[in-house]
């Protein structure tokens, strides 16, 4: 979100405090001084993670602090992973496979590329899955692994080195 705060000592802290109060996680704070445009106000961009239902509380608390919210951008799913599936994907109800991820609420299939050479042959597909965070992605992968076993298709996961 992009905020406008008074250019005075203690104001940035006052603007950040409500975020932790509503259980938000600050990822980045970028502040730019633009003297020409607004004499006594400062523009601050904050990137943060926040449970959806707490957004209203946050905007209320910020307004109470005298902070003007210029803009709220919304990117719900920040984490993504590409996987491949190989097998009888259509005959085993591809719609249902995608739906098992989508209906979790915390992860979605946002892209699907499929190659179907012939009716009797196996199909190959590349899926892009997005999730809110890493833990949700791991849960979504667990679901996909179970579905792959159940429907007897091969799931190829990306190699991610440990951090």
């Amino acid at each position: 979100m992009k905020l406008e705060i008074k250019d005075a000592p203690g104001q940035l802290v006052a603007a950040l405090k409500p975020i932790s109060e509503v259980g938000g996680n600050i990822i980045a704070v970028i502040h730019q001084r633009d003297d020409k445009q607004r004499g006594k106000m400062l523009s601050v961009q904050i990137v943060l993670e926040l449970p959806d239902h707490r957004l209203k509380d946050l905007t209320r608390l910020l307004r109470e602090q005298g902070v003007n919210i210029q803009r709220i951008g919304h990117e719900r799913l920040l984490y993504e992973k590409a996987v491949m599936m190989i097998g009888h994907l259509i005959h085993t109800d591809l719609g249902d496979t995608v739906d098992r991820i989508d209906r979790t609420g915390f992860a979605e299939v946002t892209e699907l590329n499929i190659s179907m050479p012939a009716i009797t042959e196996v199909s190959s597909a590349r899926l892009l899955i997005k999730s809110v965070n890493r833990e949700d992605m791991e849960q979504a992968m667990d679901i996909l692994r179970r579905v792959a076993k159940e429907k007897d298709f091969l799931l190829v996961e990306p190699l991610e080195e440990i951090e």
Binding site: M84, I86, N113, S115, V122, S123, S124, L154, V156
Partner: peptide, 10 residues
């Protein structure tokens, strides 16, 4: 069980 189509998509 891998296909050349899977490699192409990759």
């Amino acid at each position: 069980k891998l296909t050349n189509n899977a490699l192409r998509l990759a």
